[in-house]
Design a protein around this nucleic acid. Sequence first.
DNA 1: ACCTTAATGCAAATATTTTGCGTTAAGAAT
DNA 2: ATTCTTAACGCAAAATATTTGCATTAAGGT
Lengths: 192, 192
Amino acid sequence: MTVKERVRIGGRSARIQSAVHDAVRKLGALSTRNQITVPQIAAEAGVTPSTIYRRWGDLSALLADVAVARLRPIADPDDTGAVESDLRAFIEQYAEEMSSPVGQALMRDVLSALKEGLPSACAGFTCDHLTTLNARAKARGETPFDIDEVIDHVVAPIIYRALFSEQIPTPDYCNRLIDRIYPPARKRRTAG
Amino acid sequence: MTVKERVRIGGRSARIQSAVHDAVRKLGALSTRNQITVPQIAAEAGVTPSTIYRRWGDLSALLADVAVARLRPIADPDDTGAVESDLRAFIEQYAEEMSSPVGQALMRDVLSALKEGLPSACAGFTCDHLTTLNARAKARGETPFDIDEVIDHVVAPIIYRALFSEQIPTPDYCNRLIDRIYPPARKRRTAG
DNA sequence: ACCTTAATGCAAATATTTTGCGTTAAGAAT
DNA sequence: ATTCTTAACGCAAAATATTTGCATTAAGGT
């Protein structure tokens, strides 16, 4: 089955998309991941199942679509006044969101979809945020950090642990990762 | 539906498990990820679908089971004579396997399953290999590396890129990551 | 060789997914 | 505003997949 790109933006089409997304979020929240089905979502959204199948193809594609929408940033990261603290604040919040049960489920939904390009889109969101922090840094006259280095050595370990281990990254752990980007003052390490 | 732990190890039970696993691998190899179904697998394996449903629960659980079996190490990493080269050789091969289309599919299968503990089991395989390299190092009188550091700053970036970006990690990229564990001999800096 | 019972096959029952076709409504043209 | 075109939807039948009850097979132990 081929899912065509939508050309109709507003009106009924948008209303149904919204209703279906809401239904997925609601059902996904209460039923703890124990087989949520398309007919179930359709009933909750007040839509016939065939509408969902035609528009999204299958359940995994729908879940991935909702997940990407939820992972898409709605606001810029907090401005704390300096690059390093900006980065530390952003990463701490990012780690908490991604390693939460909800965050883990969203990542799995994105990765499970057979649709190409969705995972890289989500990685793009993170990259965008880091770029925003760097733009602020430049505007302040600060030297920006290396985005690839942050992704490889701060973001990647957090995501790897969230996906492949049961332990959640503590704020302390996150800060130690960032210490590799911004080494702490050498003389005395104040344990945190 | 509850999938009980098997108590029967050999005989017919094992034959069927093997046949089903073979069928999944065969079908997964030829059909390029375009909806492989349980009845299809059952037919290929010469088994009734109900057997598969009863033993594995659903398709994603079966795919995850096969994926873990394929990711499970069958041999120790090559012994090159020294820890650093052991690690570089192992990581290069690991990166190639994991970022290949097959490796990516296997990781997705493992992560997609609702079964708990499978992803951490796979992470354990990697950890085991690194532990093996360290045991060799100690036997040789070399100083072992920090396993957590390798996982965070070498393995994690490789997996993150394999899962969330389209670019494959080159051997050169892998070696640059390991340079953080074993810094290359600079002009005058002595490495460890 | 016999006994117990986990694991399977078969087939009916149930649920899900696909598909054809008539209807609705969004967006463009008149 | 009215008409026109057609993407998107609802409905229902058909196809397919999943679940379940029951009889049968065969491990593993006595």
